[in-house]
């Protein structure tokens, strides 16, 4: 191959690859401004009092009704897990089925060491791994701290579903795009509570603006010892748990 041709080929290759990488860097939204320091305006968060949850499943049904989540019992934006820890060390975890008729349980099942319910939902991480992996910028974190999905540009590649450490995303069978909890963005932006918080009978679920001076959420954060799920992943979740058992993952 003569020099001129090689030059042309290499030059074009460089042009293409450089352009492509540059374009992609522009599209990748999360990494560039994940950690702003000073926050003004709204910055939404969520509290869960594990010891108040009675496992009635009203939240799961309300979420489905409010957000058109498919009825099938494996699509959830929020769900409640039942933990049963036995004396022999076994831990069983199952998502409850709110529609099911309760089966009478032995009052004296002596093999149970302790048992409780844990409500779960998208953690609306400040540093969300799902946003980092999206190849088309279809999921991002809003100014007020809610991770949303743009169903118009989502290509349904499932990367974000894989990347979420909390299992909070699913592929909607209707739109074939990723779907997840939005804190009921349409409700909170007009000052209403998310549907799950609205219907919770024991105030186990608390919603609010983390920047607000006095609110049920800021009181909750002040008065309890708080955990987040999987703190080691540095996702900086904004769903805060009080009285969380060490077994909960």
């Amino acid at each position: 191959m003569n020099g001129r041709r090689r030059f042309l080929r290499d030059f074009l290759a460089l042009l293409c690859s450089g352009g492509a990488i540059g374009g992609f860097l522009k599209l990748l939204p999360g990494s560039a401004h994940a950690k702003e320091t000073v926050r003004t305006g709204k910055w939404y968060g969520y509290g869960v009092s594990v010891d108040k949850c009675i496992g009635c499943g009203r939240c799961m049904e309300a979420c489905k009704a409010e957000n058109n989540v498919p009825k099938e019992p494996f699509f959830f934006r929020t769900w409640v897990e039942r933990y049963i820890i036995r004396k022999n060390g076994e831990t069983a975890v199952r998502t409850i089925d709110p529609g099911a008729e309760p089966v009478p349980e032995a009052a004296l099942d002596k093999s149970i060491l302790r048992s409780f319910f844990v409500p779960k939902l998208c953690n609306q991480c400040a540093d969300p791994p799902c946003v980092q992996v999206c190849p088309v910028g279809a999921t991002w974190r809003t100014e007020d701290g809610v991770v949303l999905v743009n169903e118009k540009t989502c290509i349904g590649c499932r990367y974000c579903i894989q990347a979420c450490p909390y299992g909070a995303r699913y592929l909607s069978p209707a739109t074939h795009t990723a779907d997840k909890c939005t804190f009921c963005y349409h409700r909170i932006s007009v000052g209403q509570l998310p549907a799950c918080v609205e219907v919770c009978p024991t105030q186990a679920r608390i919603f609010g603006d983390l920047n607000a001076a006095a609110s049920p959420l800021s009181r909750f954060l002040r008065m309890n010892k708080i955990h987040v799920l999987k703190p080691g992943l540095n996702t900086e979740p904004k769903v805060y748990y009080a009285n969380l058992d060490g077994e909960v993952r």
Partner: peptide, 23 residues
Amino acid sequence: SVHVQWDNAILREKAKPMRYAGA
């Protein structure tokens, strides 16, 4: 521009109908 896409998506999200009227 993804920023334009995001702004549009926020508008769509906010326009979704409410089913629960509140306490």
